[in-house]
Design a protein around this nucleic acid. Structure first.
Lengths: 182, 182
DNA sequence: ACTCTAACTTGCCATTGACAAGATGGCCCC
DNA sequence: GGGGCCATCTTGTCAATGGCAAGTTAGAGT
């Protein structure tokens, strides 16, 4: 993970990633500008290139971080399938910027080995979570479960859901997932 | 819908929208450039501004068109709930560019009256489709149905699904939706 | 102390979105 | 049939961006 010790800036790589998350969380991925991130970090406009190569490189790092955060969230949800689904939604809402990048492969290098590894790790957790519950071939159940939580999270984040769903995404998600796995 | 008769270009507005769909379908929404669209249409770089104001204006028109196409697709699916869900996925896959823009409100003016109207129309069709089938309060069922088809479509379009799901998104979607409404 | 290299800066260029001001051409109405 | 009118499109310009090249700095190892 390119662990960098303290250098000129302190930890520019991390600062840039954090700033990117902040910008995207409030203005969406389209508003992201490397030069703006550099300004926020107090460095020159070309400094980001040294750590990430280009914009896609920065987003690749963000995606990898995102898949790791997702795996962490899923692990923390325990053994219950419903809880795992709720955790997926919770991750998407809480780490909206990461989530949006992760599933937009045109923005980053999806074949990056680090990203691929993290993605596989998170995918394993999802599938074992489903297999633990349902006796049948996990294929359909896993796909249905993934679809329903991913869809709910995406719709919630895009603001497409009507207000009567309520203010708490995780509570609403629990209800919805329970409809699939009663 | 601002029906324009033949003028200098022929129908620049339509040509620009078509070109935008083409570009986004193969390179994603981030690759969209007004100047590139103008070049493809054979007009000057400032011509698009006259029809759409700015980039968000063009995407607003695209989103409105998308919601209308979605409504059309849902209407064409008939009365069956499963068919309606499959049609949703079919629309998302077939009109990928429209679909991506529609659910990315940071890219366009979601409060545009024309968009809002088209969105409402499509939403009605979705909800009545669900209410027709399930006796219970349609809230949970409708949300679950929307989530599962939207999630499947999004995952399919982002290339996140494993190959064993097969090559036909609509067939796979039918299986998944049937899992929710046996 | 000296070097060597990672981390950063300065400077540059092509592209883009947006705006302003002007040119063009078809259509209406007398 | 001709003159005005307005939507349509063009030319020109500006600030911002991404990316590249070449130079500078600082800190770590020996």
């Amino acid at each position: 993970m390119t662990q960098s010790r303290a250098y000129h800036h302190g930890d520019l790589r991390r600062a840039l990633l954090d700033a990117a998350v902040e910008v995207m969380a409030e203005s969406g991925p389209a508003a992201l500008s490397l030069r703006d991130l550099a300004r926020r970090a107090g460095v020159s406009h070309a400094a980001p290139a040294h750590h990430f190569g280009d914009k896609a490189g920065l987003l690749t790092a963000l995606a990898a971080q995102g898949f790791e955060l997702l795996a962490e969230a899923l692990r923390g949800a325990g053994d219950d399938l419903i809880d795992t689904g709720v955790a997926y939604v919770g991750f998407a809402v809480r780490h909206r910027a990461h989530f949006e990048v992760m599933f937009r492969p045109d923005l980053y290098r999806a074949d990056d080995p680090e990203v691929a590894a993290a993605r596989t790790r998170a995918g394993e957790l999802l599938r074992t979570g489903v297999a633990r519950r349902t006796g049948r071939g996990p294929d359909v159940d896993a796909l249905a479960a993934w679809s329903i939580v991913h869809g709910f999270a995406t719709l919630w984040n895009s603001g497409a859901l009507p207000p009567r769903v309520g203010p708490d995404p995780e509570a609403a998600a629990r209800t919805v997932i329970s409809r699939l796995f009663p």
